[in-house]
Simulated assay, not measured.
Amino acid sequence: MAAHMAAGVRRVKPSAWVELALALPWLWWSWLAIALISGPFDTFGVVLSVVWLVSAFAVVVYPPLEHVLAAKVYRLRKPFEWELRRLGPAWWAVCTAAGADPNRYRLWIHEGPEATPPYPAPGAAIAVTNWALSRLPDRHLEAVLAHELAHSLALPRIPSLLLYWLTLPAKIAGRIVDFCWNHRLLKTLLKVVVGFFLISVIGIGLFLGFDSVWVWLLLSPFAAPVVVPWVARVQEKMADRVAFDLGYGFLLAQVFQGREYERAQLAEQGLRQTVGGTQPLDSARLHALEDLLNSSPQNGHHPPY
């Protein structure tokens, strides 16, 4: 049984190398954020870096900290009793189809109107939106859970948690920038800081030459508003593909088709993909799944359990 489960996971899981490659910009920006705050040779910088690394180890070895992260950082909540009664059978069915151990994960609820949460939760957390839980039939709920499980299949709990924690400084810096940009006084201060940073980088470029990779690495945070949402959309489409490989392609396509129908019933205008959107449009995900179903229809139906 264990060998069958392991083979099932190897068959459907996305590439760990792709997930690691997508995390590289975040790791660089996190190091850069700490370096800019503390200075690379300052004692405070050394202490901050050590605390950063030790805290990552603490999150991995002490599971209650992971639960605190899920509730406070990911903004998830524990399922109510009636929600667990609905989630339990669907979750076991999905894990059986994937050859995964359902007891290795913990189910959480994301309060939102989306079919899937805007960002996947790392570690052992599996989040499902309350919209999906309250609106979808059982089999379609399985399809959404298959999508969420796909995010966790590429990387085991420990590497996933470590990557998330080590990239947290960059994520916090991004939220600070967003907060400052939305307040008039702080926006002016932010422009001054960014201007000073640009002048410093230009000075480095004049000294090292603008063909130096370090100059472009220092300028890379300015690409974050485009790169970060693009990476998130790639991860979502990868997870959709894994759900398709598990046999949930047709059901997942029906989920997105139903959302498009709801939008039409409400006479809402068709949405356009924005540069900052972290999720592909339902219509884009539907078209991608339809292409997969047309190319390999046998893979998109009837999960093997």
Results as ranks from 00 to 15, higher is better:
170 A>R: 07
132 A>C: 01
253 A>I: 08
271 L>W: 02
142 E>M: 15
209 G>L: 09
284 A>T: 06
185 L>T: 15
194 V>C: 09
87 L>P: 01
18 V>E: 08
103 N>T: 15
264 A>W: 01
166 L>K: 09
157 R>F: 08
78 K>Q: 14
186 L>D: 10
187 K>R: 15
125 A>R: 08
23 A>L: 11
209 G>Q: 07
263 R>W: 04
43 T>Q: 14
140 H>Q: 15
296 S>I: 11
88 G>A: 05
84 L>G: 08
240 D>L: 09
127 A>M: 00
213 V>Y: 12
272 R>P: 01
257 Q>R: 09
260 E>Y: 06
68 V>N: 01
289 L>H: 01
160 S>M: 03
76 L>K: 07
193 V>E: 04
31 W>K: 00
211 D>S: 14
183 H>L: 14
102 P>L: 05
115 A>I: 04
137 P>A: 10
217 L>V: 06
236 E>T: 03
184 R>W: 11
253 A>N: 10
186 L>T: 14
60 V>M: 07
130 N>W: 07
89 P>R: 02
225 P>H: 07
124 A>L: 10
94 V>L: 10
167 T>F: 08
197 F>D: 11
9 V>G: 02
149 L>N: 01
231 V>F: 10
255 V>R: 00
206 L>R: 12
121 A>S: 15
148 E>Q: 05
198 L>C: 13
113 P>F: 08
196 F>E: 12
90 A>T: 07
280 P>K: 05
264 A>E: 02
160 S>K: 00
18 V>M: 13
49 S>R: 12
82 W>A: 14
82 W>F: 13
191 K>G: 15
44 F>G: 15
